[in-house]
Design a protein around this nucleic acid. Sequence first.
DNA 1: TCGAATTTGTGCGTATGTATT
DNA 2: AAATACATACGCACAAATTCG
Lengths: 244, 244
Amino acid sequence: MTTTRGAGVALWRQIVETLEREITTGEHPPGARLPTEAGLARRFEVNRHTVRRALEELSRGGLVRVEQGRGSFVTEDVLDYAIGSRARFSEWIRRHNKEPSGQVLDLRETVADPEVAAGLGVQKGARIILMERLGLADGRPVSLGSHHYPAARFPGLLESLGAHGTITEALAEAGVSDYRRRITRVSARMPLPREAALLRLPRNRPVLVSESVDVDQDDAVVGFGIARYPTPRVQLVFEPTERS
Amino acid sequence: MTTTRGAGVALWRQIVETLEREITTGEHPPGARLPTEAGLARRFEVNRHTVRRALEELSRGGLVRVEQGRGSFVTEDVLDYAIGSRARFSEWIRRHNKEPSGQVLDLRETVADPEVAAGLGVQKGARIILMERLGLADGRPVSLGSHHYPAARFPGLLESLGAHGTITEALAEAGVSDYRRRITRVSARMPLPREAALLRLPRNRPVLVSESVDVDQDDAVVGFGIARYPTPRVQLVFEPTERS
DNA sequence: TCGAATTTGTGCGTATGTATT
DNA sequence: AAATACATACGCACAAATTCG
């Protein structure tokens, strides 16, 4: 199929329809880079302006994202992360019909720096258990979390975390049957090189950073986590009135 | 006052104390850039390594933030913005003992683009009232908000917004005695040049972007807002259990 | 730190077809 | 039928952002 002139349909509209079909059929998967404007102009045998008119329409409709100096990209479906009191990685991912998986990057006992100490409510320099974990959805990285737990309260947690796949299970073994988020702070910054590499993020795209404190049923602090999310692949969502 | 050698106190500790005093007394106000390491080394008549040791300590304590290739900066006090169901700009700022003020950058009737239409639940192209507003705390910009309201529902809102200083007052005149946030989506991206200029933000620092839908007591959609916040000056905070 | 190459963004002028007046 | 307005399409040039060595 190619563009036909004088068919009563403007060339740029034909291009919109063609690209829309190619995107929705998966020929251009989410996140993929489209050919350059010059390339598309050659392919459709039109002027670059005509291609731009089509891209503008696609961009307005949200199917395509155009970035100056970089190119045009198929919009990636955004993962909405609901910051409710109950936030579990695997539940979040499965709700989006994707397959959750994880990768423990670091797991050790260490001491709390001032920030972590303040979050956990322990003395600066207290022993803590640190686990760093990369979260993936359908194999694509969506979160990089540093989880901190007071070593004094959970003697066997280090081994439990090493044995189990999920944090929830390991905490259950340590006697915490349920936990919830008490507070979440959200900010953003540019990624460190290592973070960009792990999250497969361009260096010029920011990471969302959330700091959260988890508490058990008695409101006692269980853990403190710092999570980094790649933008714009992940959005954090807050709904005061929670609905099933 | 200057550093003295062989006084039983390490040089770098003296430098830490001196800089700490200068920062807390306001000689180096929040956000200010400190002299370069070389400059500090000249001033204290020490090697640059010694200055670095002092800056490392200050950085660890959270008083100073060191950025590779840019310089060292006095940490700015972070404005925590609580994303509760009730979010009012002036209340937020006053809770931090700062003086709120605002600046209307744009106020007009226009048509809804797809994103706004989806947020408001109206047809794409429906008439809406748009107000763009820069929010300031003690004269420093802390938010840049685009507020959208359905023109059909609020015939006189355009004039009310022009006359009143605050959104809450204008909405009250339009018959909405109270409203609350139903949902908030948070993401981050690099600022547009205009946004960076208005928020007085370096171009390499991201903006937090929140999209929120406001509803009245009957759960009817009142407005849709897109707000941009400068990082790291502003943090968004979510507490599931609301406390007075 | 710098410049070259690549890619998108913007503006100008021109031409043609289509619909309205 | 002529005049006018608008949408479409092309060509050229340069600006701005990104990438890469």
